Amino acid sequence: MRAVVFVGPSVPPDAVRAIVADRVETRPPVRRGDIQALYADGGAPPTHIGIIDGQFFQGLSISPKEILAVMDEHRARVYGAASMGALRAAELHPWGMIGVGDIFEMYRSGRVDADDEVAITYDEDTMRALCEPMVNMRVAFDAAVARGVVPAHVGALAVRTAKRLYFPDRTYRRVLDELAGAIPGDDHARLSGFLQGEDVPDAKRADGVALLDLMLADLRAQA
């Protein structure tokens, strides 16, 4: 069996290595043609393929047809989560693509439907994200309300404020700047403290880790 995962800014490289060690090959964010190239690189045909990150605007995005072809022609198990993987899995789960995590469920349920919800800009050398994905912000603002940091109407305003921004401009600092004067000062201070704390959710990372864990579990079960 051969397993490959396409991953970039959603899960830091050191975290990926700690989870998969040498059991899963890692590749940078997927783009059009990358999956088919796996079957022409001289190695064993991949049996398990994970898609976490993919290119949206930096290059041509992987198409649903490419994934369907791999599942049909090569009988590969294809998993999707967190970013491009969640988007494609929501489209293709009726045909056998395995969706993982909360972001996949957000797309599958129709709660979100736009590409910009997971799109970000990132440093291609370090894979460090340069902005915050909208889905992470939704989950974080929901958590702030659920934990009593701010009332529901403030959380909803924060989501609307973030959504109005062009995706490369989405950062928690930018949203907080936009909210200054629009919400009570004590709410602003509590929300700022929450977003700078260690407990702020990172939905993309959590879902990417869940995909890696599931791939490893399937590999062990089929060994």
Results as ranks from 00 to 15, higher is better:
Met215Trp: 02
Arg75Gly: 06
Pro13Val: 12
Leu214Ala: 02
Thr126Tyr: 03
Asp169Cys: 05
Arg160Tyr: 09
Arg147Phe: 12
Ala90Phe: 01
Arg160Trp: 09
Ala114Arg: 15
Phe141Val: 01
Leu87Phe: 14
Arg205Ile: 10
Phe56Tyr: 13
Ile62Glu: 10
Asn136Val: 02
Leu92His: 00
Pro28Ser: 14
Ala203Tyr: 07
Gly8Ile: 07
Asp213His: 05
Val118Lys: 03
Gly155Ala: 09
His153Glu: 12
Gly197Val: 00
Ala21His: 11
Gln58Ile: 08
Pro45Val: 03
Cys131Gln: 10
Arg205Val: 08
Arg138Pro: 10
His74Gly: 08
Arg17Gln: 14
Leu195Val: 04
Ile183Gln: 07
Cys131Arg: 12
Gln58Lys: 15
Asp142Cys: 10
Val5Leu: 09
Asp187Pro: 00
Val16Asn: 12
Asp53Ser: 00
Met137Cys: 12
Val154Thr: 09
Pro29Ser: 07
Pro12Ile: 06
Ala152Trp: 11
Asp22Cys: 07
Gly181His: 14
Tyr122Glu: 08
Val118Tyr: 08
Ile52Pro: 04
Ala180Gly: 05
Ala152Met: 12
Gly96Glu: 01
Leu130Arg: 15
Gly42Phe: 11
Leu60Gly: 10
Gly181Leu: 13
Ala21Leu: 09
Ile52Asn: 08
Ala152Thr: 10
Leu87Ser: 03
Leu165Ser: 01
Ala180Ile: 02
Lys65Gly: 05
Leu195Arg: 13
Val20Gln: 04
Phe56Gln: 07
Val154Ser: 09
Arg111Thr: 05
Pro12Thr: 10
Phe194Ser: 09
Gly110Leu: 04
Asp41Leu: 10
Phe141Pro: 12
Gly101Phe: 06
Leu176Met: 15
Arg128Glu: 15
Gly8Lys: 03
Phe56His: 07
Val209Arg: 15
Asp218Tyr: 04
Gly50Trp: 00
Met137Gly: 10
